[in-house]
């Protein structure tokens, strides 16, 4: 077994465990909520969408922490694997964890709705269930790419904060690091917003109307921009990781 496969196995197992715990807690929360409603005879319908949203946000936050932790920890940085290998293993395992989380949440959502139907969610499912399959697939892809961008972008910010922090006389002062992080986030967001906005204008966003074909075109543009940013930030991460980054734990 190659070294990349060895670390992949460990990271996949670890992230699988993390997502399983989130899904498990979500199921438990739904069961407890329904039990509560039954015991106390609450008849008001309760939407399950909020729970799904909370579970997905929790999953994303924990995955971001977990991805960053791999680059910070000497536990992983000591393994005889190239920085590129470590990066792609880390991001790929996070990607599959996101897919697992989304599929798991979809199963929980539809399953829970089948067992405990409520008008709000049924309306939402009906609205989404129009015959625009290609559009729906694109929407899901855009959502996944957006989450990947959050992951990759968080790594950029962490590596930049670490690099700049090493150049400044601030050592490991928490307050100074928080301020530095906020400055770096702002410094990264400014060019990100300017470039994204200008690219959308170049691609013809001003011609977009409320018609379905216009919405599809907007979605296509978003997909293109998401892919482009993911690629650009991946290259930046690889450069920072190979040249400047070091384990801090």
């Amino acid at each position: 077994m190659s070294n990349i496969n060895r670390i992949n196995k460990d990271l996949f197992r670890q992230r699988g465990k993390l997502v399983s715990i989130i899904l498990g807690f979500h199921i438990l929360a739904i069961v407890l909520m329904m039990l509560y409603k039954k015991v106390f005879k609450v008849t008001d319908p309760t939407s399950l969408t909020g729970g799904v949203l909370i579970a997905i946000i929790t999953g994303i936050v924990l995955l971001v922490i977990s991805v960053i932790y791999v680059f910070d920890s000497s536990k992983y940085r000591l393994i005889p694997i190239s920085s590129n290998g470590l990066y792609f293993s880390n991001i790929l395992s996070a990607f599959f964890a996101i897919i697992y989380l989304l599929v798991g949440e979809a199963i929980i959502y539809f399953g829970a709705n089948a067992i405990f139907p409520n008008p709000y969610d049924q309306m939402m499912i009906r609205d989404f269930n129009v015959n625009q399959y290609w559009f729906q697939i694109k929407l899901v892809i855009a959502f996944i790419l957006g989450i990947m961008l959050i992951l990759v972008g968080s790594v950029v910010i962490r590596l930049l904060v670490s690099l700049i922090g090493d150049l400044l006389p601030i050592k490991k002062q928490t307050f100074a690091t928080v301020i530095l992080t906020l400055i770096v986030i702002w410094a990264v967001m400014v060019p990100f917003n300017v470039i994204t906005a200008n690219t959308l204008i170049l691609l013809g966003v001003q011609e977009v109307t409320t018609s379905f074909s216009s919405i599809v075109r907007m979605l296509n543009m978003s997909l293109f921009i998401l892919v482009a940013w993911n690629v650009v930030l991946t290259f930046l991460n690889l450069y920072l990781l190979n040249r400047w980054s070091e384990a801090t734990r």
Binding site: S73, S74, K75, Y76, I81, S82, R249
Partner: peptide
């Protein structure tokens, strides 16, 4: 780096666990 890591065993403080 990767070749060096193959030949070096550092006693890690195990803080990552």
């Amino acid at each position: 780096k990767i070749d060096i890591k193959k030949n070096v065993s550092l006693s890690d403080e195990l803080g990552g666990f």
